[in-house]
């Protein structure tokens, strides 16, 4: 789904910077991240563990865990700036305008309250409805997320549901006040593979029906390829590449994305060996000068060691790589020469 540029974005993140002050100095976990999400759009965010994708999600819903803090940039929801709101103002937006789904459905629900009570509680926090109305709405939501026998399940406790069913309840909870955006942080990682596809299909269907936009944070490229309209690839706290999902998957512009795509096994095609990217993502304390990916990049040049590339147009999307700059990567460097 290509989004016309004259539509105002639902979510607009500009130059977001998330820092962790530590005893040995400040760690920059998310650095100069900018993207937007249009109404009803699904933006996939992929990256390795520690790339800053979950932190970006948490920053948007205003739930960065201290000492982490937003140190720069702006987050706007429907044109309104939300990154500097007082806690109480942001609380009213959470759940009502922005829903969230977390990784582990087993631990996302309070074990001591029935799912009906948790739904009703959330509905009545955000909507001016009576108890019976809230209960009816809770029941409708449970039916909508495909819980069999919803009437009798309303008064059941989380431990009486399977993992997949619990994640359906979590989705119902995230949707209960009709949010415009859902931040889904690894919503299927903790589930059985057979359940994952169902949950993703459900999330996709519900969001299409409700016109809800989704920021889908995951490290599963398959989920992204199936679900997202656009994808942002994060590396070491920055966006390496962002663009329409089809183009990023088939025709990646950033060497890191290329490597990432090469590492996905292709069903039915017997390849000799999956390609892999040598090395590991640098720790936050050891991000090299220039392009953060340069120690692992086969195509790097002298410029990559000294100048940090920002996102620049590349194909249908944008990539943070000097390959796509008129100036190029500079003097080519063989990989081994620097390692030595």
């Amino acid at each position: 789904m290509a989004v016309a540029s004259n539509n105002p974005p639902l979510l607009d993140v500009r130059n977001l910077r998330v820092e962790f002050p530590t005893r040995r100095g400040t760690l920059v976990a998310v650095d100069d991240v900018s993207f937007d999400i249009a109404p009803g759009e699904v933006l996939g965010v992929v990256g390795e563990s520690g790339a800053g994708k979950s932190l970006t999600g948490n920053a948007i819903i205003g739930l960065l865990e201290p000492p982490g803090r937003i140190a720069g940039g702006e987050i706007r929801l429907e044109g309104r700036r939300i990154d500097n709101l007082p806690y109480e103002e942001m609380r009213k937006i959470r759940g009502a305008r922005i829903g969230a789904i977390f990784q582990d459905p087993l631990t996302s629900l309070n074990p001591l309250y029935s799912v009906g009570r948790q739904l009703v509680e959330t509905i009545r926090t955000h909507l001016p409805v009576s108890m019976p109305e809230a209960r009816t709405r809770a029941l409708d939501l449970l039916k909508e997320v495909g819980i069999p026998g919803a009437e009798s399940r309303l008064d059941h406790y989380p431990h009486q549901f399977s993992g997949g069913m619990r994640q359906r309840v979590v989705i119902a909870l995230a949707l209960c006040a009709g949010p415009r955006l859902i931040v889904a942080d690894e919503p299927t990682t903790a589930l059985d593979v057979s359940i994952q596809a169902q949950i993703i299909a459900l999330l996709k269907r519900l969001c299409r029906e409700h016109g809800t936009a989704v920021m889908l944070v995951t490290h599963d490229m398959g989920v992204i390829a199936e679900t997202a309209d656009r994808v942002a690839v994060m590396y070491a706290g920055r966006i390496a590449e962002i663009g329409p999902v089809r183009d990023v998957v088939k025709n990646a512009k950033h060497p890191y994305t290329k490597g990432l795509m090469g590492s996905i096994p292709n069903l039915g095609v017997r390849t000799e060996r999956l390609t892999q990217i040598d090395g590991a993502m640098p720790r936050l304390t050891e991000i090299p000068a220039g392009c953060a990916f340069n120690p692992r990049c086969a195509g790097r040049g002298s410029r990559c060691l000294s100048e940090r590339p920002d996102l620049m147009p590349a194909g249908t999307g944008r990539a943070a790589c000097w390959l796509h700059d008129r100036g190029g990567v500079g003097r080519p460097l063989a990989k081994e020469t620097i390692d030595a």
């Binding site: 819903i61 609380r91 959470r94 629900l109 309070n110 995230a174």
Partner: peptide, 13 residues
Amino acid sequence: ADYIKFARARGLT
């Protein structure tokens, strides 16, 4: 606990 974080994400008081 995760359910507290999720409760915050639901915007509970």
